[in-house]
Design a protein around this nucleic acid. Structure first.
Lengths: 217, 217
DNA sequence: GCCGCCCTTCTGGTATACCAAAATGCGGTA
DNA sequence: TACCGCATTTTGGTATACCAGAAGGGCGGC
């Protein structure tokens, strides 16, 4: 929970970064943002600090810039997701969540066409699933790593069949968790993540590399 | 990396909180801190925001206060540590770290008498060990959860034999990792954490409960 | 013509002025 | 005496003024 102006600046900056409207490596100049966001530097600095903490903005010397997309980091991020999410579904299955808790998840499965909305929904699904684990640290860590690799995931979900595949996987996951099949759910989400990782990496290498990979600054 | 005044304010505030000099539940009034820390509100607000993100400071409405020590959170934190640290040592063992990398760890094992320094060293050890995993997300998440439960761990390490036991465990862990015995290391650190958790919880319930557990605000 | 130095400008860091909302307390009234 | 309401104070939020250090460009010397 942030102050209103700070919140607004944060949301707009974050959106600009995640949607790639601001390119990786691009510097964030406070006095420019002051004009473009129509708020004073105080909330802007707070927002930048927040983004920096989340890893979406890097600091070099005293200049802030949009974090580049780092392939090594991406590897580690997926390894970390595997760890978090397989554990989360195991814990969730062991808890035998009530149908009411599951309902939130289903909302994420409606068909959408806009890939950005699709990605938002997918993120929401993974987080809601993690929440069923009952461990807030798993949830917040997952939230962190997901936002960190959001831009890269964007290029994956751009392919229509990618989103379709994800939806089917998600539905199956819900069934496994609800049935209390923790190990199966863990194995399944592991597969799910691996497929996602592979699609993503081939996309990055083939089509998007030049566009996405900003200078290390 | 923060601005110098902000850094200073952050360090001092953090220290005050972790050392329990500021009690859980105590409000952080910017204009008071302005006097006691001799800096303006700008860096103070930045420091508070940082602490808030780390979970050491809570916000209710628009007042910030020192986060209470929540026993449920503590449970989840240890569960999370088990997950992170068992994985970390497995990954570390698989990498067969060079002796040079191990040397950093040994520095944490010198005998100390001051329990605060001891705790700092123990934290450093666990983080350095996690670093051997080669996964930055594991490291940063562990850093987060460790600082979050720092105050509670304090009461555990107060017992001299607690620190002694920890040192012995740490030494053994290094040997296992260096020998590439990932599963054994994972099992051992799991035990290590469980003992730690048990000692800590009995301490909290018996001696420290009234002192440490602030109001939920 | 090229290199280097100085001056200007730009940037982030800090302090402070200003504001609105919420809390506090005092005084009046029932 | 207890309670309600208004005035005052306190507080966090925001804008802005001011500063020092770094960077960039232009001018002068070699």
């Amino acid at each position: 929970m942030l102050a209103p102006q700070t919140e607004e600046a944060y949301r707009r900056l974050r959106r600009s970064i995640l949607s790639l409207e601001m390119r990786p490596g691009e510097p964030l100049v406070e006095r420019r943002l002051e004009e473009s966001l129509n708020v004073s530097r105080t909330p802007i600095r707070a927002a930048i600090q927040q983004l920096s903490r989340e890893g979406l903005v890097h600091r070099t010397g005293r200049v802030y810039s949009v974090a580049p997309i780092d392939l090594e980091e991406l590897e580690e991020a997926f390894q970390f997701r595997e760890l978090l999410e397989t554990t989360a579904v195991r814990l969730a299955a062991a808890r035998r969540p009530k149908a009411r808790e599951i309902k939130n998840l289903l909302a994420s499965l409606e068909t959408r066409l806009d890939p950005e909305v699709e990605l938002e929904k997918a993120t929401g699904f993974h987080l809601a699933l993690a929440k069923l684990s009952g461990n807030r640290f798993i949830v917040s860590s997952l939230a962190g790593v997901l936002s960190r690799i959001y831009r890269a995931r964007y290029v994956e979900i751009m392919r229509p069949q990618g989103a379709e595949q994800a939806r089917a996987d998600h539905l199956h996951l819900i069934e496994l968790v609800q049935a209390g099949q923790g190990d199966e759910a863990a194995a399944f989400i592991f597969k799910h993540l691996q497929r996602s990782r592979e699609r993503l990496e081939s996309s990055l290498e083939n089509d998007w590399g030049a566009i996405l990979l900003g200078e290390k600054a």
